[in-house]
Amino acid sequence: MTPLAAPTTTILVTIDEKTYSADPGETILDVCKREGINIPTLCFLEGVSTVGACRLCLIEIEGTRKLLPACATVVAPFQKVKTNSDRLKKNRRMTLELLFSERNHICSVCVANYNCRLQDLAHEVGMDHVRFPYLFPDCNVDGTNKIYNIDHNRCIMCTKCVRTCDEVEGAHTWDVRGRGFESRIIADFDEAWGTSPTCTLCGKCVSVCPTGALWHKQSVQNNMKKSPEMVSELTAKRGRKG
């Protein structure tokens, strides 16, 4: 678009007043990760496709009024990016509050307490309370699987489990049912996980789940450790990225 487009080899972008070089096709999040600039993310997972669903990684680009997701926005020559303006801080906090109010998150009784991305981020942005009324949706817990449980009360619909199950394990047990407030993660035809003919019990979904929505039956309160890097490393070894 711009007549001043740089030669195709490297692109110069300015992030928070500093200039960095980037390869064409890289996302703003890629550059920030490499340069050690912290951008909060919830639905992004290295190694599987990007959906831009959680809106936590929103950034500002000069000349655009809209906030754009860093995970899904590709660098362009001479882009000026802000990652930590007041507007963004406010927005992140609001997004987190909305996530909390949408389901029934009760950290004190959760297996992922102290090991939860959602909790960590709330802490990071200084969310001390939620200004929105809680919606208290009617969610169930499926404990039919031999080894794992899924508690929809704690799910934030990041769909990491869905993408990992499909793209890495190749089983596609999980998907999303319905729309908006009524959407839920489902196994097969919205059936019990325990009887799923497609599930291989590999546990990758449990590893990538950022909250306590998917957990190992053996873990008790506060001691669930998640390892999303495992999936990223696996895909890197297979020579595939995003």
Binding site: D166, A171, T173, R177, G178, R179, F189
Partner: peptide
């Protein structure tokens, strides 16, 4: 009908959960 949704999933080689996701969307 639920039994036909199963047939559709099988015939088109689409994972059950994806078909159900579309049906409920």
């Amino acid at each position: 009908p639920m039994n036909l949704i199963r047939v559709v999933s099988k015939e088109l080689h689409i994972p059950p959960s994806r078909v159900f996701g579309v049906v409920t969307f």
